[in-house]
């Protein structure tokens, strides 16, 4: 998870990925950022995120993204 947060920080600088829970609803992440995150998850973790999973609930926090990856992997 720590490594994942570091990778997120590299994609979008200046965002508090440790604590923020409204990354999408609060406007911290835009569509371009979401696509870069999905690309990173695909490259670094070998997990494909299908378009049906691109909903605010899955991207509002680093933990939500991590949980989504966990669900998709299993």
């Amino acid at each position: 998870m720590e490594k994942f947060i570091e990778q997120l920080k590299k994609i979008k600088k200046g965002v508090d990925f440790e604590h923020e829970t409204s990354l999408i609803d609060g406007g911290f992440l835009k569509s371009f950022d979401v696509i870069q995150i999905i690309g990173m998850i695909d490259r670094e973790y070998g997990i494909s995120v299908p378009p049906s999973q691109i909903i605010p609930d899955n991207f509002n926090s680093a933990k939500a993204m991590w949980d989504m990856m966990d669900r998709l992997e299993n």
């Binding site: 569509s31 999905i38 690309g39 695909d42 490259r43 299908p50 378009p51 691109i54």
Partner: peptide
Amino acid sequence: LKNYLFYPMAVSRAFLRFGN
């Protein structure tokens, strides 16, 4: 368009593989 066209296209295998 974002939900049903932009995202499905941008995260498709072809697009991501091209980027990679």
